[in-house]
Nucleic acid binder design. Structure first.
Lengths: 138, 138
DNA sequence: CCAGAGTTGATAATGGTTCTCATTAGCGTT
DNA sequence: AACGCTAATGAGAACCATTATCAACTCTGG
């Protein structure tokens, strides 16, 4: 009896899947609260940690220091392309980069190499929107 | 009179330059304290933020959520190879990766792409040390 | 239905970072 | 060199995300 199925865990999983991009535990908890579930903050954290450990979600640190989580559709190692305006996330593969990372690490005598590779940018809709705003201001 | 020169700011700059790799504001503050300077924690944070904003230092979030800073010796864009045990940092170039990042971003309609590429691993000394410890335990 | 162990959730604790505000000290001016 | 204006400082409080605590709860196998 190592792991039990609770509705709380399921709700967290659903909420994470519904989110377009990365969300913080706080945000997730807030939206679950709004859905009249009396779910506790600690539980959300535990569920997210569990999902991340199981490989069903991955996490990254936002520049503001918050931990962000996202449901993993692609199993295994992969990277992200993230819109810094709306949070839209695209999962990308980067075999070349993987190899480069390992090669570079080895070159400098580093072993047990892990790497962080993420690209932040503006997706087309957001770029257009920003352009429109700039035009309106001028 | 927008910016003043204070010995505190200078000490922070020096301490950051002396550090081998990335250091946290806390660590930096602690070592400055040991040097019998009565410098305040808040001041260290302010100085670091200022350096980072001016481009004289760059910062990243450690997996533990701490903000780490490092003096930039290489001006311009570059990446890091960091020992997760001792903090030793090597600055690396990655022209290939730069191009890949831009190409990938463009491919998905993303513009204004920035990227985060850092490799964490164990440097040779730390790998050896860890090996020795494992041997001792067994 | 029972018992026992994994879960939950309210709350306290932790720890890094930022804010407050009275005091200090650059720096241009006189 | 002294003056005054204002940015900078620093001790501690405030903040906020995350984690630990622990009694109450609820799955699940028997």
């Amino acid at each position: 009896m190592a792991q039990r199925n609770t509705w709380q865990r399921e709700r967290v999983r659903e909420a994470l899947a519904d989110a377009r991009g990365f969300v913080s535990a706080q945000t997730l908890h807030a939206s679950l609260r709004d859905d009249n579930t009396g779910i506790g903050l600690a539980t959300v954290y535990r569920a997210l940690a569990g999902l991340a450990a199981a490989g069903d979600a991955d996490s990254l640190q936002s520049p503001e220091g918050e931990a962000l989580y996202r449901a993993c559709t692609t199993q295994g190692h992969h990277h992200h392309l993230i819109c810094r305006s709306c949070g839209l996330t695209v999962e990308i593969e980067a075999k070349d980069v993987e190899q480069w990372a390992h090669r570079t690490a080895a070159l400098h005598g580093f072993t047990d190499a892990a790497h962080v590779v993420d690209i932040f940018g503006l997706c087309t809709p957001c770029a257009n929107k920003r352009e429109a705003e700039r035009a309106a201001t001028a």
